[in-house]
């Protein structure tokens, strides 16, 4: 008979700080004024099409995982983003939180955490170790996405800024200012 590993441990009580931080973020998302998502969709479509066209090596590193659906969940924003990096039809769409979205991978953290990660400023393993980043679903797909993004010399945040054409520099400056003012003081 094949032996089994011993029974696993049970859940422990929540830590108060973590509960409050998370509740705060999710509370903000619930209370924030509704964003007209239809106005965001063309911009998101433009961003994902531009990035897929500029970075074929990113799609190549994803392999078959480019067909997967990545649900990106910024806790403190009132919407999800659904990314499908399919080179034939790349898609990035925003959905209201009330909807149940079919997905293969769920990536969640605060907006700033996720932005820092795609901007190459934070190590995603360290974010995971520190519980700032949560991954559920198809782990292989998310590991492939992480590694593909990490091989980009420019960051996705640069590419997103570039999608704003003549406004790219101000947009990048806003992103940088966001990092500067949101960073914890030493």
């Amino acid at each position: 008979m094949r032996p089994t590993l011993p029974a696993m441990i049970t859940h422990r009580p929540l830590s108060g700080k973590a509960r409050l931080d998370d509740a705060g973020a999710r509370g903000f998302a619930r209370l924030a004024p509704p964003i007209p998502l239809f106005a965001l969709q063309p911009l998101l479509g433009h961003i994902v099409t531009t990035i897929a066209g500029r970075h074929p090596e990113l799609i190549a590193r994803l392999g078959d995982n480019c067909r997967k659906r990545f649900l990106i969940d910024p806790h403190n924003l009132p919407f999800f983003l659904l990314l499908q990096p399919d080179p034939d039809r790349p898609r990035l769409k925003a959905y209201g939180r009330a909807r149940d979205i079919e997905h293969d991978v769920h990536i969640s953290g605060t907006f700033l955490t996720l932005l820092r990660m795609i901007d190459g400023q934070s190590d995603s393993d360290a974010l995971f170790f520190n519980r700032d980043l949560t991954i559920t679903g198809d782990t292989e797909a998310v590991v492939a996405l992480r590694n593909a993004l990490d091989n980009m010399d420019v960051t996705l945040a640069d590419d997103v800024a570039a999608c704003f054409g003549p406004l790219s520099r101000p947009v990048r400056a806003v992103i940088d200012l966001t990092f500067k003012f949101a960073s914890p003081k030493p």
Partner: peptide, 27 residues
């Protein structure tokens, strides 16, 4: 990975649960 509503994170490898990390605990 499976995270419950209280942010406890269960880690499985294949059919085996290998850890259950409480909310606020490092992974």
């Amino acid at each position: 990975y499976e995270e419950d509503e209280d942010r406890n994170l269960k880690t499985r490898l294949g059919e085996f649960a290998i850890d259950c990390i409480a909310c606020g605990e490092h992974a």
